[in-house]
Design a protein around this nucleic acid. Structure first.
Ligand code: MN
Ligand code: MN
Ligand code: ZN
Ligand code: ZN
Lengths: 154, 154
DNA sequence: ATAGTACTGAGACTGAGTCTCATTATAGTA
DNA sequence: TACTATAATGAGACTCAGTCTCAGTACTAT
Protein backbone atom coordinates (compact mmCIF):
# COMPACT_ATOMS: atom_id res chain seq x y z
CA UNK A 1 0.00 0.00 0.00
CA UNK A 2 1.36 3.33 -1.10
CA UNK A 3 0.70 6.11 1.40
CA UNK A 4 -0.37 8.41 -1.41
CA UNK A 5 -2.55 6.00 -3.34
CA UNK A 6 -5.64 8.16 -2.89
CA UNK A 7 -4.08 11.52 -3.71
CA UNK A 8 -5.44 13.67 -6.53
CA UNK A 9 -3.51 13.12 -9.81
CA UNK A 10 -0.56 15.44 -10.29
CA UNK A 11 -1.38 18.40 -12.55
CA UNK A 12 1.92 19.45 -14.05
CA UNK A 13 0.54 22.56 -15.76
CA UNK A 14 -1.06 23.94 -12.61
CA UNK A 15 2.07 23.08 -10.68
CA UNK A 16 4.25 24.96 -13.15
CA UNK A 17 1.98 27.97 -12.92
CA UNK A 18 2.25 28.03 -9.15
CA UNK A 19 6.02 27.68 -9.21
CA UNK A 20 6.35 30.48 -11.74
CA UNK A 21 4.03 32.70 -9.70
CA UNK A 22 6.01 32.19 -6.51
CA UNK A 23 9.31 32.86 -8.21
CA UNK A 24 7.99 36.04 -9.81
CA UNK A 25 6.47 37.15 -6.53
CA UNK A 26 9.98 36.99 -5.08
CA UNK A 27 11.44 38.87 -8.04
CA UNK A 28 12.92 35.98 -9.99
CA UNK A 29 12.40 34.24 -13.32
CA UNK A 30 11.54 30.63 -13.90
CA UNK A 31 14.67 29.81 -15.87
CA UNK A 32 16.01 26.56 -17.24
CA UNK A 33 18.32 25.93 -14.33
CA UNK A 34 15.61 26.48 -11.76
CA UNK A 35 13.18 24.35 -13.71
CA UNK A 36 15.77 21.62 -13.91
CA UNK A 37 16.08 21.50 -10.12
CA UNK A 38 12.33 21.65 -9.53
CA UNK A 39 11.65 18.88 -12.02
CA UNK A 40 14.29 16.65 -10.49
CA UNK A 41 12.44 17.00 -7.18
CA UNK A 42 9.06 16.32 -8.80
CA UNK A 43 10.26 13.31 -10.74
CA UNK A 44 12.14 11.63 -7.93
CA UNK A 45 9.27 12.03 -5.47
CA UNK A 46 11.47 11.91 -2.39
CA UNK A 47 13.98 14.26 -0.73
CA UNK A 48 17.22 14.67 -2.67
CA UNK A 49 20.73 15.50 -1.56
CA UNK A 50 22.99 17.68 -3.65
CA UNK A 51 24.82 14.63 -4.94
CA UNK A 52 21.48 13.07 -5.91
CA UNK A 53 20.72 16.20 -7.89
CA UNK A 54 24.14 16.12 -9.53
CA UNK A 55 23.54 12.55 -10.67
CA UNK A 56 20.10 13.40 -12.02
CA UNK A 57 21.24 16.64 -13.70
CA UNK A 58 24.85 16.07 -14.76
CA UNK A 59 25.10 19.30 -16.73
CA UNK A 60 24.05 21.56 -13.88
CA UNK A 61 27.02 23.22 -12.11
CA UNK A 62 27.24 22.69 -8.40
CA UNK A 63 27.28 26.39 -7.56
CA UNK A 64 24.18 26.98 -9.65
CA UNK A 65 22.36 24.06 -8.06
CA UNK A 66 23.08 25.37 -4.57
CA UNK A 67 22.05 28.88 -5.56
CA UNK A 68 18.84 27.68 -7.14
CA UNK A 69 17.96 25.72 -4.03
CA UNK A 70 18.40 28.80 -1.86
CA UNK A 71 16.25 30.91 -4.18
CA UNK A 72 13.60 28.22 -4.39
CA UNK A 73 13.49 28.07 -0.61
CA UNK A 74 13.08 31.84 -0.40
CA UNK A 75 10.23 31.63 -2.90
CA UNK A 76 8.51 28.95 -0.80
CA UNK A 77 8.87 26.23 -3.42
CA UNK A 78 11.50 24.07 -1.77
CA UNK A 79 12.13 23.00 1.80
CA UNK A 80 15.49 22.00 3.20
CA UNK A 81 15.64 19.05 5.55
CA UNK A 82 18.30 18.64 8.18
CA UNK A 83 19.38 15.04 7.98
CA UNK A 84 20.97 12.52 10.30
CA UNK A 85 24.08 12.52 8.19
CA UNK A 86 26.01 15.62 7.13
CA UNK A 87 24.12 16.13 3.87
CA UNK A 88 21.09 18.37 3.61
CA UNK A 89 18.22 17.10 1.56
CA UNK A 90 15.65 19.08 -0.37
CA UNK A 91 12.02 18.46 -1.21
CA UNK A 92 9.06 20.41 -2.57
CA UNK A 93 7.27 22.63 -0.06
CA UNK A 94 4.41 20.87 1.67
CA UNK A 95 1.67 23.02 0.16
CA UNK A 96 2.82 21.91 -3.29
CA UNK A 97 2.52 18.27 -2.32
CA UNK A 98 0.82 17.51 0.98
CA UNK A 99 1.70 17.42 4.65
CA UNK A 100 3.72 14.29 5.26
CA UNK A 101 6.51 12.75 7.29
CA UNK A 102 9.69 10.82 6.71
CA UNK A 103 11.15 7.42 7.15
CA UNK A 104 14.87 7.99 7.56
CA UNK A 105 17.32 5.13 7.15
CA UNK A 106 20.04 5.49 9.79
CA UNK A 107 22.30 3.27 7.71
CA UNK A 108 22.22 4.72 4.18
CA UNK A 109 20.51 8.07 4.80
CA UNK A 110 17.71 7.41 2.34
CA UNK A 111 14.49 9.30 3.08
CA UNK A 112 11.01 8.10 2.12
CA UNK A 113 7.82 10.13 2.38
CA UNK A 114 4.94 8.77 4.38
CA UNK A 115 1.50 10.24 5.06
CA UNK A 116 -0.43 9.34 8.22
CA UNK A 117 -4.24 9.52 8.26
CA UNK A 118 -5.78 12.90 8.87
CA UNK A 119 -7.26 11.83 12.21
CA UNK A 120 -3.73 11.18 13.39
CA UNK A 121 -2.62 14.63 12.36
CA UNK A 122 -5.50 16.25 14.17
CA UNK A 123 -4.75 14.42 17.39
CA UNK A 124 -1.04 15.17 17.17
CA UNK A 125 -1.58 18.84 16.45
CA UNK A 126 -3.93 19.25 19.37
CA UNK A 127 -1.61 17.74 21.96
CA UNK A 128 1.44 19.54 20.66
CA UNK A 129 -0.20 22.94 20.48
CA UNK A 130 -1.04 22.65 24.13
CA UNK A 131 2.50 21.71 25.13
CA UNK A 132 3.96 24.53 23.07
CA UNK A 133 1.61 27.13 24.44
CA UNK A 134 2.48 26.18 27.99
CA UNK A 135 6.13 26.97 27.17
CA UNK A 136 5.31 30.28 25.49
CA UNK A 137 5.98 28.94 22.01
CA UNK A 138 4.09 30.00 18.91
CA UNK A 139 3.76 26.90 16.73
CA UNK A 140 4.35 27.12 13.00
CA UNK A 141 4.43 23.43 12.20
CA UNK A 142 5.82 20.09 13.16
CA UNK A 143 8.32 17.59 11.92
CA UNK A 144 7.93 13.91 12.62
CA UNK A 145 10.51 11.44 11.40
CA UNK A 146 10.80 7.73 11.89
CA UNK A 147 14.34 6.51 12.29
CA UNK A 148 15.17 2.96 11.34
CA UNK A 149 16.56 0.77 8.61
CA UNK A 150 15.19 0.67 5.10
CA UNK A 151 14.34 -2.60 3.38
CA UNK A 152 17.65 -2.85 1.55
CA UNK A 153 19.71 -2.05 4.66
CA UNK A 154 17.98 -4.59 6.93
CA UNK B 1 3.15 23.70 34.05
CA UNK B 2 6.58 22.18 33.52
CA UNK B 3 6.51 19.13 31.31
CA UNK B 4 8.79 17.27 33.68
CA UNK B 5 7.12 18.24 36.94
CA UNK B 6 6.31 14.64 37.85
CA UNK B 7 9.63 13.09 36.97
CA UNK B 8 11.64 11.15 39.54
CA UNK B 9 14.27 13.32 41.24
CA UNK B 10 17.65 13.27 39.53
CA UNK B 11 20.11 10.90 41.25
CA UNK B 12 23.53 12.25 40.42
CA UNK B 13 25.43 9.33 41.95
CA UNK B 14 23.49 6.69 40.03
CA UNK B 15 23.81 8.77 36.90
CA UNK B 16 27.58 9.01 37.27
CA UNK B 17 27.81 5.26 37.76
CA UNK B 18 25.89 4.64 34.56
CA UNK B 19 27.98 7.07 32.56
CA UNK B 20 31.20 5.54 33.86
CA UNK B 21 29.93 2.05 33.06
CA UNK B 22 29.04 2.94 29.52
CA UNK B 23 32.36 4.63 28.90
CA UNK B 24 34.26 1.68 30.27
CA UNK B 25 32.17 -0.75 28.27
CA UNK B 26 33.37 1.12 25.18
CA UNK B 27 36.97 1.05 26.36
CA UNK B 28 37.33 4.59 27.68
CA UNK B 29 37.89 6.33 31.00
CA UNK B 30 35.62 8.82 32.68
CA UNK B 31 38.12 11.67 32.68
CA UNK B 32 37.82 15.29 33.69
CA UNK B 33 37.23 16.55 30.18
CA UNK B 34 34.49 14.03 29.49
CA UNK B 35 32.90 14.73 32.85
CA UNK B 36 32.98 18.42 32.11
CA UNK B 37 30.99 17.93 28.91
CA UNK B 38 28.51 15.54 30.51
CA UNK B 39 27.91 17.86 33.44
CA UNK B 40 27.33 20.84 31.18
CA UNK B 41 24.59 18.83 29.48
CA UNK B 42 23.08 17.77 32.80
CA UNK B 43 23.17 21.25 34.29
CA UNK B 44 21.74 23.10 31.33
CA UNK B 45 18.89 20.63 30.87
CA UNK B 46 18.42 21.39 27.19
CA UNK B 47 20.33 20.62 23.98
CA UNK B 48 23.60 22.53 23.64
CA UNK B 49 25.55 23.65 20.62
CA UNK B 50 29.33 23.64 20.60
CA UNK B 51 29.40 27.38 21.23
CA UNK B 52 27.04 26.90 24.19
CA UNK B 53 29.49 24.37 25.58
CA UNK B 54 32.40 26.71 24.99
CA UNK B 55 30.65 29.43 26.94
CA UNK B 56 29.83 27.06 29.81
CA UNK B 57 33.30 25.46 29.85
CA UNK B 58 35.73 28.20 28.81
CA UNK B 59 38.83 26.16 29.62
CA UNK B 60 37.90 23.20 27.46
CA UNK B 61 39.63 23.23 24.06
CA UNK B 62 37.39 23.05 21.04
CA UNK B 63 39.05 19.96 19.59
CA UNK B 64 38.70 18.13 22.89
CA UNK B 65 35.05 19.08 23.22
CA UNK B 66 34.29 17.77 19.76
CA UNK B 67 36.23 14.58 20.41
CA UNK B 68 34.50 14.01 23.73
CA UNK B 69 31.11 14.44 22.11
CA UNK B 70 31.92 11.81 19.51
CA UNK B 71 33.15 9.37 22.15
CA UNK B 72 30.14 10.03 24.36
CA UNK B 73 27.87 9.32 21.41
CA UNK B 74 29.67 6.05 20.71
CA UNK B 75 29.24 5.09 24.35
CA UNK B 76 25.51 5.81 24.15
CA UNK B 77 25.63 8.71 26.61
CA UNK B 78 25.03 11.60 24.26
CA UNK B 79 22.80 12.09 21.24
CA UNK B 80 23.49 14.51 18.44
CA UNK B 81 20.56 16.48 17.05
CA UNK B 82 20.48 17.80 13.51
CA UNK B 83 19.14 21.31 13.79
CA UNK B 84 17.37 23.76 11.51
CA UNK B 85 20.43 25.98 11.48
CA UNK B 86 23.92 24.82 10.64
CA UNK B 87 24.91 23.99 14.21
CA UNK B 88 24.52 20.54 15.69
CA UNK B 89 23.22 20.30 19.21
CA UNK B 90 23.91 17.67 21.80
CA UNK B 91 21.83 16.24 24.62
CA UNK B 92 21.93 13.28 26.98
CA UNK B 93 20.73 9.98 25.53
CA UNK B 94 17.04 9.42 26.09
CA UNK B 95 17.47 6.44 28.40
CA UNK B 96 19.46 8.66 30.77
CA UNK B 97 16.64 11.20 30.90
CA UNK B 98 13.34 10.18 29.34
CA UNK B 99 11.78 10.03 25.92
CA UNK B 100 10.85 13.56 24.93
CA UNK B 101 10.50 15.98 22.04
CA UNK B 102 11.66 19.45 21.10
CA UNK B 103 10.34 22.92 20.60
CA UNK B 104 12.69 24.48 18.08
CA UNK B 105 12.76 28.26 17.61
CA UNK B 106 13.12 28.99 13.91
CA UNK B 107 14.38 32.46 14.76
CA UNK B 108 17.14 31.96 17.34
CA UNK B 109 17.67 28.20 17.12
CA UNK B 110 16.98 27.60 20.80
CA UNK B 111 15.71 24.12 21.64
CA UNK B 112 13.46 23.29 24.59
CA UNK B 113 12.55 19.80 25.77
CA UNK B 114 8.92 18.85 26.05
CA UNK B 115 7.30 15.58 27.14
CA UNK B 116 3.87 14.57 25.87
CA UNK B 117 1.66 12.27 27.93
CA UNK B 118 2.31 8.55 27.64
CA UNK B 119 -1.06 7.94 26.01
CA UNK B 120 0.03 10.23 23.20
CA UNK B 121 3.25 8.30 22.70
CA UNK B 122 1.42 5.01 22.57
CA UNK B 123 -0.98 6.25 19.92
CA UNK B 124 1.81 7.80 17.86
CA UNK B 125 3.97 4.70 17.99
CA UNK B 126 1.16 2.46 16.90
CA UNK B 127 0.24 4.48 13.81
CA UNK B 128 3.84 5.02 12.80
CA UNK B 129 4.87 1.40 13.17
CA UNK B 130 2.17 0.44 10.77
CA UNK B 131 3.19 3.01 8.18
CA UNK B 132 6.83 2.00 8.44
CA UNK B 133 6.13 -1.70 8.14
CA UNK B 134 4.12 -1.12 4.98
CA UNK B 135 7.23 0.46 3.43
CA UNK B 136 9.56 -2.30 4.58
CA UNK B 137 11.17 -0.16 7.27
CA UNK B 138 12.36 -1.46 10.61
CA UNK B 139 11.62 1.25 13.17
CA UNK B 140 14.19 2.15 15.80
CA UNK B 141 12.59 5.30 17.13
CA UNK B 142 11.00 8.57 16.23
CA UNK B 143 11.77 12.24 16.34
CA UNK B 144 9.04 14.81 16.72
CA UNK B 145 9.87 18.49 16.75
CA UNK B 146 7.66 21.51 16.93
CA UNK B 147 8.89 24.43 14.87
CA UNK B 148 7.89 27.93 15.87
CA UNK B 149 9.01 31.01 17.73
CA UNK B 150 10.10 31.00 21.33
CA UNK B 151 8.68 33.45 23.86
CA UNK B 152 11.56 35.91 23.53
CA UNK B 153 11.51 35.83 19.72
CA UNK B 154 7.75 36.43 19.37
C1' DA C 1 19.56 48.52 -31.19
C1' DT C 2 20.32 50.00 -26.36
C1' DA C 3 20.20 50.01 -21.60
C1' DG C 4 19.17 48.00 -17.44
C1' DT C 5 18.75 44.04 -14.80
C1' DA C 6 18.68 39.18 -13.75
C1' DC C 7 21.12 34.89 -14.42
C1' DT C 8 25.02 31.85 -14.76
C1' DG C 9 29.56 29.25 -14.14
C1' DA C 10 34.08 29.15 -12.37
C1' DG C 11 36.38 29.16 -8.68
C1' DA C 12 37.81 31.54 -4.29
C1' DC C 13 36.43 31.48 0.27
C1' DT C 14 34.28 30.15 5.01
C1' DG C 15 33.84 27.57 8.97
C1' DA C 16 31.86 23.44 11.48
C1' DG C 17 33.72 19.38 12.23
C1' DT C 18 37.68 15.85 11.79
C1' DC C 19 42.31 14.19 11.87
C1' DT C 20 47.32 14.10 13.17
C1' DC C 21 50.86 14.04 16.12
C1' DA C 22 53.78 15.26 19.88
C1' DT C 23 53.14 15.52 24.73
C1' DT C 24 50.98 14.31 29.12
C1' DA C 25 48.22 11.55 32.31
C1' DT C 26 46.78 7.16 33.98
C1' DA C 27 46.56 2.17 35.19
C1' DG C 28 49.04 -1.90 35.98
C1' DT C 29 52.97 -4.37 37.53
C1' DA C 30 56.98 -5.48 40.20
C1' DT D 1 58.41 3.84 44.05
C1' DA D 2 60.05 3.25 39.40
C1' DC D 3 58.92 1.47 34.85
C1' DT D 4 55.98 0.35 30.93
C1' DA D 5 52.10 0.31 28.03
C1' DT D 6 48.23 2.53 26.69
C1' DA D 7 44.77 6.15 26.77
C1' DA D 8 43.88 11.10 26.80
C1' DT D 9 44.84 15.71 25.58
C1' DG D 10 45.76 20.35 23.06
C1' DA D 11 47.38 22.71 19.13
C1' DG D 12 46.67 23.30 14.88
C1' DA D 13 46.48 21.41 10.04
C1' DC D 14 43.04 19.74 7.15
C1' DT D 15 38.44 18.51 4.79
C1' DC D 16 34.60 19.62 2.23
C1' DA D 17 29.49 21.09 2.22
C1' DG D 18 27.92 25.23 1.47
C1' DT D 19 28.42 30.41 0.35
C1' DC D 20 30.18 34.34 -1.95
C1' DT D 21 32.35 37.08 -5.76
C1' DC D 22 32.82 38.58 -10.13
C1' DA D 23 33.13 38.70 -14.98
C1' DG D 24 30.47 37.33 -18.76
C1' DT D 25 25.78 36.10 -20.70
C1' DA D 26 20.79 36.17 -21.41
C1' DC D 27 16.46 38.49 -20.72
C1' DT D 28 13.19 42.22 -20.91
C1' DA D 29 11.44 46.58 -21.98
C1' DT D 30 11.45 50.56 -24.58
MN1 MN E 1 2.09 15.65 10.81
MN1 MN F 1 7.52 10.47 21.09
ZN1 ZN G 1 19.03 2.28 4.06
ZN1 ZN H 1 13.90 32.16 19.75
Amino acid sequence: MKASADRAPFDRAAFDRTVRERLERSGRRYTGGRRSVVEALVESGHPLSISDIEKLRPGLPRSSAYRHLVELQQAGIVRRLSAEDEFSRYELAEDLTEHHHHLVCVSCGRVVDVTPPKSFEIAVTEVLDELATSEGFTVQGHRLDLLGRCASCS
